[in-house]
């Protein structure tokens, strides 16, 4: 009988001690905010384009953390969606936008036609348009995220979205992979094989 009493007392004490520890820990190590939001935001492309329906990438990250769909980011494309699926532990979903393939674009202002209305400057989420009232505007190409937001407000339609051209710096070595159809020529093939053998022999000696 006493053993049961001892067990009850001991377990109660233990429960109290652990409860105190847990209570203390919950105050001491309290996590401010939701860390998953930062992780989601790190995956988003930060174009701040608002195509997801949220005003910027951070609000969409918050929405994802609260259970919104992960397929609302056209600039990020399928790659971002898959990463988000991995992070959030949900099944990948096809992008709900038509823009499946995300071609990086940069805004370009046809400067002859610009009337200097500053509307695009106000629309740009990353302050990548330079200009002043009644003066020509221009895009700082390296800071442009290609979000499209400046195209709509332009009253004279002088903004184009130009795909980023491939140059020697960003070439991805995929250009040379043009499929070549080899017309079968027996004599040449046989000669090639013989020569191939000869080269291999040459390399051995």
């Amino acid at each position: 009988m006493s053993s049961i009493a001892i067990a009850v007392v001991v377990l109660t004490l233990l429960a109290l001690i652990f409860g105190l520890i847990l209570g203390y820990a919950s105050i001491k190590f309290k996590v401010e905010g939701n860390p998953i939001i930062d992780q989601v935001e790190a995956l988003l492309p930060q174009t701040q384009c608002g195509q997801c329906g949220y005003p910027g990438c951070r609000p969409y990250a918050e929405a994802i953390a609260n259970g919104d769909n992960i397929n609302k980011c056209p600039p990020g494309g399928t790659a971002t969606m898959e990463k988000l699926a991995g992070l959030m532990g949900v099944d990948p979903e096809p992008l709900n936008e038509v823009a499946q393939e995300a071609v990086k674009k940069v805004a370009y202002i046809r400067e002859d036609e610009c009337i200097g209305c500053t509307k695009c400057i106000q629309a740009c989420p990353v302050d990548a348009i330079l200009g002043a009232g009644k003066l020509m505007h221009t895009v700082i190409a390296k800071d442009c995220t290609g979000c499209d937001l400046c195209v709509e407000p332009c009253p004279v339609d002088c903004i184009d979205m130009i795909p980023v051209e491939q140059n020697l710096k960003n070439w991805d070595w995929k250009l040379a992979s043009i499929p070549v159809t080899v017309v079968e020529d027996r004599t040449v093939t046989i000669r090639m094989k013989q020569e191939d053998k000869a080269v291999k022999e040459d390399s051995q000696c």
Partner: peptide
């Protein structure tokens, strides 16, 4: 060939990431 493609893809990815960070900073500043 495979390594070159992979390397350039990684390089571009790193650049994009840097650009995204830059864009975020500019967006927040705005």
């Amino acid at each position: 060939e495979y390594y070159r493609v992979a390397k350039s893809a990684l390089k571009n990815e790193a650049e994009e990431k840097q650009q995204a960070e830059q864009a975020k900073i500019r967006f927040e500043a705005r």
